[in-house]
Amino acid sequence: MAELSATTPKTEDRPSALREFWFYFSENRGAVIGLYVFMAFVICAAFAPLLAPYDPTEQFRDHILQPPAWQEGGSWAFPLGTDPLGRDMLSRLIMGSRYSFFVGIVVVCVAVTGGVIIGLLSGFAPKWVDTLIMRVMDIILSFPSLLLALVLVAILGPSLTNAMIAIAIVFQPHYVRLTRASVLSERQKDYVTSARVAGAGKARLMFKTVLPNCLAPIIVQAALSFSTAILDAAALGFLGMGAQPPTPEWGTMLAEAREFILRAWWVVTFPGLAILVTVLAINLMGDGLRDALDPKLKRS
């Protein structure tokens, strides 16, 4: 993003939208750090098979529970040590980034698409449809998200795909409410009336006229959901209701390592640290996005 804005011609009077965005975004140092960490995470996920020194499921029977390289008994062949089955921790962590990234992307895409469409419909529909939709969303919001996801997985059967579906369903109402609220305030404005007078149809009004002006809070919420989705998927994996072993998903790795916590600190510490760093980076970025995109939400 930095390179892109740097190549914009300097003669321009009004800065481009991207440049303006970057100006505000880069004011927040934490957000920039978050962005770099997130980019590293994305690269890690994209090139995982190339970066990982070993196959994540390969078992080295002679190196069971070997500590990390800097500790006594460790070797640089396994920089972060090995797990109880002799699998290389580093390779598993690198491959694990793929699952977390995948979960984040899929959940956010599904929840945003569904939530925005329902929210737009709700904002434009007659009063009774609107009321009906909002009550249904209230009902979903009455259940604690993790509990609802757990129960949905219990119905669908434990797997990473089902965990993603469940989390996406649980996140949906937030987008519906957010979109509807912005639509209701935008709909009263003059530009919408003028578009309507000019003969724009319902669909055009909804998606081309109003939606682009409602996007800022939705993008911020999407960034925050990305991190929550990773956390929830890891929690489901930890409870045995998400990705199943031997998948190197970070939450599942933690669940497998639980019985070794007092004997081998590294099998527990690293997967959790990976979750924390990723989630923290995304949240930092989300704060920066909010400051840059939505001055109204600015946390002073």
Binding site: L254, V268, L276, N283
Partner: peptide, 18 residues
Amino acid sequence: ALVGYSMPIFWWALLLII
């Protein structure tokens, strides 16, 4: 506070136990 907000609490619990 941001670290706490981003914390996977199941991992946090295991760390505290260790």
